[in-house]
Design a protein around this nucleic acid. Structure first.
Ligand SMILES: [Mn+2]
Ligand SMILES: [Mn+2]
Ligand SMILES: [Zn+2]
Ligand SMILES: [Zn+2]
Lengths: 141, 141
DNA sequence: TTATAGATGCAAGCGTATTGCATGTAGTAT
DNA sequence: ATACTACATGCAATACGCTTGCATCTATAA
């Protein structure tokens, strides 16, 4: 058992979730990448790790993780959800129209905008979602 | 034929789309509200207008409208798409966690953020999506 | 009025996501 | 180490959003 896996197991136990092979591997997947994964991607990864999890199980895993606050569910203009670790600092995504690559975007000062909206309209803003679309560096050539 | 309907018909003809009853009524729907509609809502509205359009037809209508630039497709963290008029000035949405009401949000200075991202990361940003979630004025009580 | 490109209805089908139930297993008590 | 039990999983059925093929219908223009 490597360190990373050990960390994953601990993290699961802290949330009162049983550390099953599929869940441990799923956690490891999320910790190894900054690309939000959909259920199919996660299932494929598990399969490569010799863990044959049913799609229903993978859906249950991401729903449970999200409900426990381990991951968060995001939407990138597709008819499916993606998931990524929730413990990252608040950030957004850039998606390339051409190659589909996803890049994290941090340090957007949305709080200022939210404060302004609250003052103008009286809305209590708790969360936001912001995505950018366009061409990545290599696809601009 | 009232003025509004007449406008809708003209708008359709300008885009080389045939002005069928379902399309005219759909245009009228979009012009009468600022709440983004999903296919089911649109279908229900048409039905109330004595126009019984099949779901497939409504899906085709919103796809065609969007393709012709009359409407735009948006996603509000649901596993379905919504549609609204495209000719409004660029704006975003606030969705109440409690009652689901949707409010338009304008005058967000995202361009400044986009310019900063372009300079820092070299990404060419063409569009963005921004939604806020929280509690509307009446649900805060 | 007729001809025809295009729109619709219907049914089949696809992909994502959920759920009920029987079985399997992680965590715990013995 | 063993047995127990609550929880997790596999499997199949199901729901739902959305698309598509094809026959039929119709808005538009000749
Ligand atoms: Mn990310
Ligand atoms: Mn709007
Ligand atoms: Zn690219
Ligand atoms: Zn509300």
């Amino acid at each position: 058992m490597n360190t990373r896996q050990h960390n994953c197991k601990e993290e699961l136990q802290e949330t009162e979730l049983r550390a099953t092979p599929a869940r441990i591997a799923a956690m490891r997947y999320f910790e190894q990448t900054d690309k939000p994964a959909d259920v199919q991607m996660l299932k494929t990864y598990l399969h490569k790790q010799k863990i044959k999890a049913d799609s229903a199980t993978v859906f249950r895993i991401v729903n449970t993780f999200t409900q426990k606050g381990l991951t968060k569910q995001i939407q990138l203009n597709e008819n499916k959800f993606r998931y990524e670790l929730a413990d990252k600092i608040d950030h957004h995504h850039f998606i390339c129209d051409n190659c589909g690559t996803i890049e994290d975007i941090s340090d957007c000062n949305i709080e200022a905008i939210e404060k302004e909206i609250n003052q103008k309209k009286g809305l209590l803003i708790k969360r936001h979602r912001l995505e950018f679309f366009g061409l990545c560096k290599s696809c601009q050539r």
